[in-house]
């Protein structure tokens, strides 16, 4: 997995609450058996005026000029600023894959849905929870200043604005450790293979029905 220690980038405002994973990447694109190539279809139904199809060249599709990521000032954004309950709905990891493929590295919101939040860390994306008032202030600053950038430091757990104002955020130690070092967490778990086997053997004694094949 790609590591992330610090990041600085242009901020794009996604100004609606309850953005669901169907919205982030609609179902027709989940038919892919790959992890990559979802970027052109990120927010497909908001971004284009027609209905998107898998494996289609998106460069000739009619775009929705009102949609934020179609505006020149946000086209190179790598920090997504969002509202409450971002990433709700389906567990599809295609959602973080699409955000990553578009070029996002950091998502800031007042709250995230649990499964989406977890999926981000598995893909080198950092979801950051900040208080609603701070997020509101960042929205205003983003709207007011073209090319507005934020700096994020996972080491010190801070978000810093261009004027030098800093906000700290919480992230649990294991996820932070894995993301800082780009660790494969399967490898980390397998360091405890003996413990897993020991647990399994004990369960085979106390709850053998958990290991039955069909009768």
């Amino acid at each position: 997995m790609r590591a992330l220690q610090q990041h600085q980038g242009i901020v794009a405002p996604m100004d609606r609450s309850n953005v669901d994973t169907d919205m982030i990447i609609p179902k027709q694109f989940l038919k892919s058996i790959k992890r990559t190539g979802f970027g052109p279809n990120l927010f497909d139904e908001l971004r284009y005026l027609d209905e998107g199809k898998p494996d289609q060249d998106c460069s000739n599709r009619p775009i929705n000029p009102d949609f934020v990521l179609n505006q020149d000032r946000y086209k190179n954004a790598s920090v997504l600023l969002a509202r409450r309950n971002f990433g709700c709905g389906s567990s599809r990891e295609h959602a973080p894959w699409a955000l990553d493929d578009f070029g996002f590295r950091v998502i800031i919101a007042p709250s995230f849905a649990d499964i989406f939040y977890n999926n981000c860390f598995k893909n080198g994306l950092l979801p950051i929870v900040l208080d609603e008032e701070i997020v509101e202030k960042l929205f205003q600053e983003t709207y007011d200043n073209e090319g507005y950038q934020l700096s994020v430091d996972l080491e010190t757990k801070t978000v810093t604005t261009p004027s030098g104002e800093s906000f700290s955020f919480e992230v649990d130690d294991f996820r932070r450790h894995c993301l800082l070092n780009g660790l494969d967490d399967i490898g980390v778990t397998l360091e405890d293979a003996d413990l897993i086997r020991e647990y399994e053997n004990q369960r085979r004694q106390t709850a053998p029905w958990l290991f039955n094949a069909a009768h």
């Binding site: 567990s91 990891e93 598995k122 778990t189």
Partner: peptide
């Protein structure tokens, strides 16, 4: 529910 990375994690480690 889990994401695909966790599907792989469960397949590989049962945890």
């Amino acid at each position: 529910g889990i994401g695909t990375s966790e599907v792989e994690h469960v397949l590989a480690t049962q945890c």
